[in-house]
């Protein structure tokens, strides 16, 4: 018996079970990229800032740790989805639509986590540099950093929401594993939704990271106008986020398309 006959002997159940493990690997693998880069960049800027102002090393270190903890959020979300994917019962995948949903959820969460972690890292890097330059503006810079990082993470949170939706899609009731007619297109729709949200979250998050990093630098230079800078940052970040909203809309439409028949 050839390899394909062996693989298809159970109607493809073995192949289907690989979906959730591959998806778990994709989720945590991609999600590990961004936090590493972002947190490392922040740490490098913190080292430079301490070399510039050793007197406020404690404040710089504290801000660095808070910023790193927040940029870690998207990595944690990827890890959690990977755990959920790995720990679920592989025999419970009903059909190929459900399998594609699992794959799509892993891809979505993993890809969405890259950009926002790097963006959040950019924000906290500028914040620690700003504190190194102007230690007396520390509280305002930290507040701006928190808001900027939270804005940069919005897209990965949207990715998490879509990933949870795809994770729990179930593939529709009454569809067997051997039913190919009508399921392949729906499986493709789920995959497309995951890819749309995952890749679509990359750029906006990086862009919001630029906005937030410049805002942190601006607040450190000109703390008197912190309120105006924060509001401008908010508006700019909202405009920059609009393309991620496009992706969210397309992902939800594709999810609705895939689930329409069931």
């Amino acid at each position: 018996m050839g390899i394909w006959e062996q693989l298809w002997a159970t109607g493809g159940q073995d192949l289907l079970e690989t979906c959730q493990y591959v998806a778990g690997g994709l989720s945590v693998g991609f999600a590990a990229i961004g936090p590493g880069v972002g947190e490392g960049y922040t740490a490098g800027k913190a080292v430079a800032a301490i070399a510039r102002q050793p007197a406020v090393a404690g404040a710089i270190l504290r801000t660095m740790l808070i910023g790193q903890a927040i940029s870690e959020t998207s990595g944690i979300l990827g890890l959690v989805l990977a755990f959920l994917l790995i720990m679920r019962d592989p025999a419970a995948i009903a059909n190929w639509v459900a399998g594609a949903g699992l794959l799509a959820s892993g891809l979505c969460m993993g890809l969405a986590a890259i950009g926002s972690a790097v963006g959040a890292g950019l924000v906290s890097a500028e914040a620690v540099e700003g504190i190194g330059r102007m230690p007396e503006t520390q509280s305002r810079v930290t507040l701006t950093m928190l808001i900027g990082q939270a804005l940069a993470q919005n897209t990965s949170i949207l990715g998490f929401v879509v990933a949870m939706l795809l994770f729990s899609s179930g593939g529709g009731a009454g569809v067997d594993i051997t039913d190919w007619a009508g399921t392949v297109g729906r499986a493709g729709a789920l995959l497309g939704g995951g890819i749309a949200m995952g890749i679509g979250a990359f750029g906006p998050a990086l862009g919001i990271g630029f906005v937030g990093s410049r805002a942190c630098a601006g607040v450190a230079q000109n703390a008197k106008h912190a309120g105006a800078i924060q509001r401008t940052m908010f508006v700019g970040a909202a405009v920059s986020e609009s393309t991620a909203i496009y992706s969210l809309v397309v992902a939800l439409i594709l999810y609705a398309v895939a689930m329409a028949g069931s």
């Binding site: 601006g218 000109n222 106008h225 105006a228 401008t232």
Partner: peptide, 11 residues
């Protein structure tokens, strides 16, 4: 009020 000219351009 100049928040943009002062903070924005230099940043």
């Amino acid at each position: 009020t100049g928040a943009v000219e002062v903070g924005g351009l230099s940043t």
